[in-house]
Write a protein that binds this DNA or RNA. Structure first.
Lengths: 215, 215
DNA sequence: ATGCCTTGTTGAGCAGTGCTCAACGGAGCA
DNA sequence: TGCTCCGTTGAGCACTGCTCAACAAGGCAT
């Protein structure tokens, strides 16, 4: 409310922002502001008023770039998800047998650092919102692919289901652990890896041989 | 919007609702309406206007019972969570070695039936919202207790962490499975149980004997 | 330069929503 | 008959999402 207590229309824009930016750049600026604000509070509390004030533009202009507040929020979520996938993305030059561990470590680190905005996205808007759920599912599929590749396993529907579930396990575990670190970090990572291996162990189909066919 | 298209102040109240209910009953009625609406859309889209219209009262009256819209929402969440815990609650007369399976089956059934409202609660409001997160954590701890009791294991911080994580695993798995049932139901339950047993297997502390102390 | 056109930008203003508050009125009781 | 709770009302304020007609700053042809 009384952030800078300025009644002047200047209102302390975040970048001095001469004026009349090219469309693409203004879009990026607005999304950037949204991402920044998202680290402080949930999407639902990010008002058009504040965003436009920070951008140094009028409220009306925002609706020239995003037809609705909802669309603006979707754009922010998309950007945040892209960022997350990129961060957890494969380590490349890491040795085969260490990939899983590295992926987990990166994901844990990400959840640790960006806990609030992540929670704000994942748990903050997805409810009953088809489009957001779709964006979330899309990004989660990306992560599933990353994990499967790190595991060196070919994707099958059942395996994808298991890994997706494991991601939920990681989310919940890490988020709980952050609030109450009942064990050192490396142990948590080991635990997550053990769980993953146990969950995707080769014998999900009960009618096959217990050792799996042709290991 | 044009639900019943009535301009008359009567507005089709849900129960004919004579008038002047005792306070406690009115509270229950309002929360009940909220729970019902929650099955149709996320909390954020449940407006005071609609609730009061359905209750056949004025908008102002709602604020006599809940000082703020947020408080009203919190009350709804609390009620929904209580309901959920009660449903998954221990089966009592079930044989020891079947308890885990039964709990899982009940939880899966719950997620299947009330998928939308559950998602609307769990993922719908928790973001960046300390109080909601607390309610959620509280209710999740209840479930952790249920599972641990079904397992016949004494609660320790590490075990609680694991089971909480497993609940996340169940959530994610079941919710994904509902959209794309890549395996029959009983197999999913079996899978969830296997995952739980694998996750809480007795050797979480790496410095102890691999068999655990004094099994 | 001059006028024109594209296009980013504005600001007043409407509608809807959360919330407040002074006043109302029916039920019970002396 | 009058008094007093207490559940209830409804006007109204502040704020926010959103619209729209008008504006102004370059670039382009003349």
């Amino acid at each position: 409310m009384a952030v800078n207590a300025g009644q002047a229309p200047a209102g302390v824009p975040d970048p001095p922002s001469g004026k009349r930016l090219p469309a693409a750049e203004r879009r990026r600026q607005l999304i950037g502001i949204g991402l920044q604000l998202l680290t402080e509070r949930p999407l639902g509390e990010i008002t058009v008023e504040e965003v436009s004030r920070r951008a140094g533009i009028s409220r009306g202009l925002l609706f020239n770039y995003f037809p609705t507040r909802r669309d603006y929020h979707l754009a922010i979520i998309r950007a945040a998800m892209r960022r997350m996938s990129r961060i957890a993305e494969p380590p490349e030059e890491v040795a085969e047998d260490m990939r899983v561990k590295v992926v987990i470590e990166r994901f844990v680190a990400f959840l640790e650092r960006r806990r609030d905005p992540y929670v704000a996205i994942i748990r903050g808007v997805a409810g009953g919102d088809a489009e957001v759920a779709e964006i979330y599912a899309e990004s989660r599929n990306l992560l599933v692919g990353v994990v499967l590749r790190a595991l060196g396993r070919r994707p099958t529907p059942a395996l994808e289901l298991l890994v997706a579930g494991w991601l939920g396990f990681v989310e919940e575990t890490v988020l709980t652990w952050v609030n109450r670190p009942v064990m050192p970090r490396h142990e948590l990572v080991r635990l997550l890896e053990r769980a993953l291996l146990a969950i995707v162990e080769r014998r999900t189909a009960p009618r096959d041989l217990p050792n799996g066919p042709a290991a």
